[in-house]
Amino acid sequence: MKILIAIGSKEFSKPTLNLGMKVAQAFNAKTTIIDVGEKISEFSSQLVELAQDQMESWDFDPPGVDVLEWAFNYLSENNLIDVTQLETGFPKNRLIEDGEDRKMVYLSGTVCEDVNLILRNGDIISELRDEVQYGKYDVTILGKSRKRNMSHDLLQYINSSVLIVNNYDNQKFDKILLPLNDANGMMKVAKYAIRVAMALDVGIDIFTVINKKSLNQERSYIIKKVIKLIRRSGVQFTNEEKEGEVVDQIIKKADKNKIIVMKASNMSPIKRYFKGSVPLSVMNESDVPILIVK
């Protein structure tokens, strides 16, 4: 399992790193923390690099290093990385350019496999997509953006499951909400939900919204299998069915205290692009963290 956690600033990325590392711990995943710096106009990019070289000679770090240093300190303070071999904190000198337009530093994890820190520059979606393709990540974790279309682009173009950390607070979340339908791949979603529930030590609310299109027989078969799986894992759960509009019901049920884990849409990318999808609507409208499993 490989997890990519995208951070952006010291001010806003703490919840993302916090939840991201808990999930990484749950999956014992090889984890990479990435900061994607702002895209620089190609007109000035070379000159900016030249200026940054000059700044380094005056002991200034390139932009983004401070964010990685903050992440390093966070990991170190929470004993999430092994710092015994590092004498003087964040090893800036080990931040190496690896020829893929990115700088990275390798660290060894304690609660999960290796933790790498990566610095990239450019358009966030494009850079994350490249990184996911390059590193073959299973889950990408990042904070919710105010940018229009960001959620859509993440779901549409990032080729991994996506966890959007929205309003995450350690104390507030006491349940995982697992909306089910009759689509293929629900068992994988259930497995993800169980892992996250175990990591956060919370229960799972299985939730099915009934509408006319659903095939009752198929649905009840899936629910039975999911319940069996969750029961075997030892995680506390409830099971509820409700009639109504799917997105509204899920958001209502999630309230402000549940982390949603749901399956990505099975629609073709073209249909999804023009029509949207249930997971996208839930992601846009909910105020809680949401993991969309692909």
Partner: peptide, 14 residues
């Protein structure tokens, strides 16, 4: 911050 290299360089300082 994007039009002139001098402005972009200064902006890149953060």
């Amino acid at each position: 911050a994007v039009a002139a290299p001098a402005c972009t360089i200064v902006y890149s300082s953060g």
